[in-house]
Amino acid sequence: MTYKTAMLGALLLSSVFNCAHAKELNFGTQVQPELLTPVSTIMASPQQYVDKPITIKGTIVKVCTKRGCWMNIASDKRFETLRIKVKDGVMVFPVSAKGREAIATGTLQALKFNLERTREIKAYYAKEEGESFDPASVTEPMTMYQLVPTGVSILD
C-alpha cells in the first residue's frame, strides 16, 4: 500500500469519526419551538395530547445504551420524566448526550398494558429503585406515554 493510499484511507476514516462527535446534534426534521409544552403540563393530562403534535424540552437523564433508540427527558416537575422513543435505527441517540438539553417535536403515544404486564413493569421499576413490590397491590392496568419524535435537537 502506498503512502498516498494510506493517507486517503485515514482521511476518510477521520471524516466518519468527526461526524460522530459533532457539537449540536440534529435528528429527523426540524423541531417546532412554537409547539413547546412543559412536560409537567403534558403528564398532568396526557390523554389530551395523544396523537397531537407537541414539542418538549428538558435535560436528557437516561439514554438507551445499546441501540440509542430512546431517551428520558426530565420534566420541570421533580422525579418526572417523559420518554422519547424511536424504532431501532430511525434515530440513534448517543450516550454522551446524557446531561445535555434536548428539544423534540413529535406526537404523544399511549401504551396500554393489561394487568399482568402492568405488574411486570411495576415490579421491574420497583427492583430498579431497590423497593419491595407486592403484585397484589396492583389492581388496575396502566397506560404509559411516550413521545414518538419527528425531529430532535440535542443542544450544545
Binding site: 437523564v61 439514554v63 426530565a74 421533580r78 422525579f79 450516550v95 454522551s96 448526550a97 446524557k98 429503585e129
Partner: peptide, 16 residues
C-alpha cells in the same frame, strides 16, 4: 444533575 427518584441523585459528566 437530576433526581431520578427520592433515593437516587445523578450527576452527568462530560463524555457521557
Amino acid at each position: 444533575t437530576f433526581w431520578q427518584n427520592k433515593h437516587q441523585f445523578d450527576v452527568f459528566l462530560e463524555g457521557g
